[in-house]
Amino acid sequence: MASGMLSTFLKRGAIWGFILVELIFFSIAGEQLSLSDKAFMDLDNMLLLFKQSAPIGIIAIGMTIIMINGNIDLSVGAIFALAAIVLLDSMTWPIFAGLGDWAIPLAWILALLAGVLLGALNGFIVWKTGIDAFIVTLGSMLGYRGLVFIYNGENPTSHLNWTLVDFAEAQWLGLHTATWFLLGATFVIWFIMNRTVHGRNAYAIGNNREAAVNAGIRVGPHMMINFMLIGFLAALSAVVFYSESGSVNPNDGELYELWAITAVVLGGTKLTGGSGSIISTFGGVLAIQLLRKGLGHIGADTETVNLVIGLILIAVLFLDRQLNIKGKEELRV
């Protein structure tokens, strides 16, 4: 049936179509409105766009698996900030002083470990208490952010290691280090969700928790693994970003959880769980970054950008709903 295939295509490929529309719009509008004489789709500009997508993007990939699993994690912004502090501060610790540049991998491992532990704590509480993940991570969002402030008050934590900065600023096959990490995270998580037992069970739990329990699937451990994964990815995002910038403010990463959720939802993952796609989230991340960059390119200020993204999010979900209703009516027969 042609109409069925069309609506399936529209649903699956919607985000990529949207990205295409953005590219065309900003290229044309850029000709007319941009103050710079560079084209919007200039190669350097596009490479930069990927790099700038990385911090939110890596977190959004993790948020996708959490949401497919039927949960949500609001604490990722705070984990991001805390992991950044662990990264930058640990490199100055006296015990690492004699190691030279070997302090770098140790600092990375410590920061990532911090992320995994904080995520594990979230997952453990959700598992053992049965409290909704929204509430648990709302609490830990405040709690983890509190730890960030306890660490260094209102002051930024800074440490620049030039070896690290070189690594973070490097380009390999044209793509920046951060971009490679985003692509890597996307691929690995896609693989986990689509090819492993854990991924399959995560979908099943999100779609019908009771049926999953009745099939002997232990729901708790799977949820905990997912929280550890997102903790890891939030820390990875921080590690990649702060290796380059070298300074973290205690407010950094605020609202990241909401940006990540926005990207996930734009990519078509359901808030109710059970369905969603890692690749589409990647598309969602790019679409948001394109919008920011594009609007900036044609001279809009930040406030306008947020307004437009908000409106587009609602419009996209409305469209998605219409397509889904249409699809359902066809399936009923």
């Binding site: 090819r195 492993t196 037992v197 854990h198 399959r200 069970n201 979908y203 099943a204 779609n207 019908n208 009771e210 049926a211 999953a212 009745n214 099939a215 002997g216 699937i217 059970g274 369905s275």
Partner: peptide, 28 residues
């Protein structure tokens, strides 16, 4: 409500309780 994951395929539902046993390495 309790027996099936309606959003999954026939095959995935049928093997739901035993994919742990079916895996090759970490993969399904």
């Amino acid at each position: 409500g309790q027996g099936l994951v309606l959003g999954m395929s026939c095959r995935d539902n049928m093997t739901l309780p035993q994919i742990e046993d079916l895996k090759a390495g970490p993969f399904v």
